[in-house]
Design a binder for these strands. Structure first.
Lengths: 224, 224
DNA sequence: TTCCCTTTGGTGACCAAGTCACCAACGCCT
DNA sequence: AGGCGTTGGTGACTTGGTCACCAAAGGGAA
């Protein structure tokens, strides 16, 4: 109770006091180190996580052992799609992996269900989060089907780059992010280099010409 | 009240009587002709539809004007993803189109919200439906990224064929179902024809060798 | 019926992207 | 220094998507 974590979540600011008290009492703050599997297929999730710090990558592992990146949960967001499985008592088909050290509020199934029943503000919070994720998934499908890889890679680099304009990721990681092959990333990055948009080093890509990347992205109205 | 439509939905069978009465009183049965746009982007949905008869196709229309098929809602299922937008007061980004004449139960936003608050059985119904759809979307992404087109087309033909082994759809329609180009469908169907698996006529495909198609699909562990 | 027009399907050339089989360079460990 | 796992680069090939056509089938309207 040291500090009001609830402020981190816009949608929860207007919770009535009693509901807010129940939420705080019925949940706990947890920390997990980078690399932890936060949820996994075949293991029923029993906590809704609201991220305070760090990011969680959600991906689908296919039978062939390959992985597709689905979406990323940032601080201030929730792993809300897992709740469908919490309440439906069905298994989730996707993995969630902490990309960094993560601090989160864990809301157990029972508390979650109570809050959904009692509070229309909480319901709106949950359904808004759903709506965002689902829209993201729709957009993902659209991108995969219609966007060129160079455009998608450029967009992703801009998204992943820190304030120092550096993306710390191997070609292989970028490939699974975009659901493509490492070779395609290598080739596309060489092309970007040739155009003077990036410099490469082992395990990182430095953006030296954001402008060019941005023009490429804008030229084919990409969403994110 | 003539007949208990609630029986059509497994998850609703065990609703307590009072909740069930509220659901029946607070909803109405509607019919729409084939081709009707049931919901659309930029138009906030204010009814949850539970399909009694017919099917609804849900697709994403991209900026470029092209369409991707997302999933199909059958009789006995609900357009539940629209509820996220109903309660979140956000717009949906996908279209829903009645593929056939459709009869459905329309539950207005207010009734839906009440029921979610009051009944844990109804909550479970809703979240189970969510869970299915979301899993479908994950599987869709996986398929698009990793499955070969011939396998996906074979699977879809088997899925769409009636008891008479005929799929009534043009190549163009099959193409948007799978998010590919008409030419690809034409070429793949010619190949299937060459192998003696299908006969073609204008606007329809007759399956003459289900066995071959099934083997193709099974050979690369496809999901649906 | 004939003509016209739309819808549907077929084709070849070309480009983008995924796959396969390698190899080279780097970093790290002992 | 030697050995090894990780990372990135490359060429040849296949699959799939795009473009620009054309031809055949069906459906009115005159």
């Amino acid at each position: 109770m040291e500090e009001p974590w609830i402020k981190t979540f816009k949608g929860l600011g207007s919770l009535p006091d009693d509901v807010r008290a129940e939420l705080e009492a019925g949940s706990q703050i947890v920390s997990v180190p980078a690399g932890t599997q936060v949820f996994a297929p075949g293991q029923s999730a029993d906590n809704l996580l609201l991220l305070l710090e760090g990011t969680v990558r959600v991906q689908q592992r296919s039978e062939t052992g390959r992985e597709v990146f689905l979406y990323r949960v940032h601080a201030g967001e929730s792993c809300v799609l897992t709740t469908a499985c919490m309440l439906a008592f069905e298994d989730y088909s996707a993995d969630g992996i902490a990309e960094t050290n993560v601090t989160a509020v864990a809301i157990p199934r029972k508390t979650f269900d109570d809050l959904v029943a009692k509070s229309s503000v909480f319901r709106e919070f949950v359904f808004t989060a759903y709506s965002r994720r689902i829209t993201d998934l729709f957009t993902l499908v659209d991108d995969i089907v219609f966007q060129r890889m160079d455009v998608r890679l450029a967009a992703r680099l801009l998204e992943l780059a820190g304030a120092d304009d550096v993306v710390r990721a191997t070609h292989a990681v970028l490939a699974t992010e975009l659901g493509t092959a490492r070779e395609v990333i290598s080739r596309t990055l060489s092309e970007f280099h040739r155009r003077g948009w990036v410099e490469q080093a082992r395990g990182e890509v430095r953006l030296t010409g954001r402008g060019g990347l941005e023009r490429l992205v804008k030229s084919s109205g990409v969403h994110a």
